[in-house]
């Protein structure tokens, strides 16, 4: 079973999460539900620092043994930092998708986009509906 989705962040319909640091920067990752669907993650391609991404544009790639999946930018902005630990230990996403398995730190270019994202409760509902 998936771990419960923390309420201190927002969620996209493509199964990414965004946590506002309160200083104009945000942390982005994929949800526990997403890692559970992907299963054994063996490779992560991180974005370049300084890269500007638009909402819903591919910004990283996660690969399991069998599959290659894009990670879409949940919001537009500039990549300030990336989780280099994922290059050596991509399984951190499986183990701790909401914490140690974070993917990038971003500066949002359009804070209004946050309103298009889902709360933890709405995301849970969305996942339930998607299963049917």
């Amino acid at each position: 079973m998936s771990k419960s989705n923390p309420t201190d962040r927002l969620y996209s319909r493509e199964h990414e999460w965004v946590k506002d640091n309160g200083d104009g920067t945000s942390i982005v990752g994929i949800t526990d539900h997403a890692q559970e669907m992907l299963t054994d993650i063996v490779f992560v391609e991180l974005p370049l620092i300084g890269k500007k991404v638009s909402k819903s544009e591919p910004m990283a790639v996660v690969e399991s043994v069998k599959s290659v999946s894009d990670v879409y930018a949940p919001v537009s902005g500039e990549v300030l930092d990336v989780n280099l630990k994922l290059e050596e230990t991509p399984e951190l996403i499986n183990q701790d998708a909401f914490g140690q398995g974070w993917i990038a730190k971003m500066r949002l270019s359009n804070a209004a986009e946050l309103k298009t994202l889902l709360s933890a409760a709405d995301y849970e509902q969305f996942v339930k509906e998607e299963k049917h």
């Binding site: 299963t39 054994d40 063996v42 399991s64 043994v65 069998k66």
Partner: peptide
């Protein structure tokens, strides 16, 4: 069946 638990475990 493509996998039961995960590919690495089964492998």
């Amino acid at each position: 069946p493509v996998q039961y638990s995960n590919v690495i475990d089964e492998h």
